[in-house]
């Protein structure tokens, strides 16, 4: 008899059928041709901004050793188009919908969370606090513990659905930011966004991406993310969503052992469009092989 293994996980009041979801910006509605969306743990669309935004100059991506740098910027059609088109398009699927929000100020985060966090089709919010605070010093919100605390606390007041803070790895101490987000009312933490990076074409001496610098993702960043998940798990009991360089089930398992409850998959989908469901299948195989009945039992089991 095949054992019934439990893969569901909880983020605050929300239960996901399994711990694997797309990373924001590396997933789109058109991918349904290649991937069965009903099999994944949740849907996470590209970060949305309040107003339409054009995104950055091209080239917007380049490849580096075991990774890629992207400087897409948040190319966005704005909140109205998101409400009219993106949400209905994704609500057709049978899995939770987690909206990722980018904003230029705390006020704007609050305003957008009020709209999206009270929308009947949205199950949780992921706050992309790795984007720059244009009304502050221009640094990412998530680089400052006090700003992170204030942001979470104010958003918490306008919605009851689970709040996920997506942390930036470009900080001295991820623990300080994680604690601030926790204290401010986050229900979970995504660890983490891309690492600020740069590559130069030595022939032309020009930066490889139009925006000069961009975010590094892919297998190159995974050991850093595993370290940050481990460190974050030491200072908070919130569920952690590991993100950065998950290419297969084993990478996901590694993050779970380090302290994650779930994982996000981005770059891997560009190489294998079925990466998300492949990772789910490979986690299941690992559970069979190690006779793990509940995936939650594996979280944070690293033996030091």
């Amino acid at each position: 008899m095949i054992a019934q293994r439990k893969m569901g996980i909880s983020i605050g009041s929300l239960t996901l059928p399994n711990p694997v979801m797309p990373a924001s910006g590396a997933f789109g509605p058109e991918m349904h041709e290649a991937l069965d969306f009903n099999q994944i743990g949740a849907i996470v669309p590209k970060s949305i901004t309040k107003h339409p935004q054009p995104g950055n100059d091209t080239p917007r991506v380049c490849e580096t050793y075991a990774g890629m740098i992207n400087s897409i910027g948040i190319q966005s059609k704005g909140l109205d188009a998101y409400l009219a088109k993106t949400i209905p398009e994704f609500s057709a699927y049978d899995v939770p919908l987690i909206s990722s929000i980018s904003a230029e100020s705390i006020d704007e985060f609050v305003e957008m969370s009020d709209v999206l966090g009270n929308h009947p089709d949205i199950d949780a919010l992921e706050l992309n606090i790795s984007c720059p605070n244009l009304k502050g010093d221009g640094h990412a919100f998530g680089m400052d513990a006090d700003v992170t605390y204030e942001l979470m606390q104010r958003v918490r007041k306008v919605t009851d659905i689970p709040l996920i803070a997506k942390l930036t790895p470009n900080v001295t101490s991820i623990q300080e930011i994680a604690k601030a987000a926790d204290a401010g009312g986050a229900d979970a933490l995504t660890v983490a966004n891309t690492m600020l990076a740069m590559a130069i074409d030595t022939e032309s001496r020009k930066p490889m991406v139009g925006n000069v610098m961009g975010g590094l993702s892919g297998p190159a960043v995974k050991p850093i993310m595993v370290r940050m998940i481990y460190q974050t798990a030491q200072v908070t009991d919130l569920p952690i969503i590991g993100c950065g360089g998950v290419m297969n089930g084993n990478d996901a398992i590694e993050m779970i052992i380090a302290g994650a409850s779930a994982v996000q998959v981005g770059t891997a989908s560009f190489i294998t469009p079925t990466a998300l469901t492949d990772v789910i299948e490979e986690i299941r195989e690992y559970m069979d092989r190690h006779d793990i009945m509940d995936i939650n039992d594996l979280t944070g089991t690293v033996e030091i």
Binding site: A26, G28, M31, T58, C62, N70, Q75, S269, F270
Partner: peptide
Amino acid sequence: EQMGCAMGACFACVC
């Protein structure tokens, strides 16, 4: 145009 996903997801290849 330089491409990432070629599936319309990443917005790398815009014009």
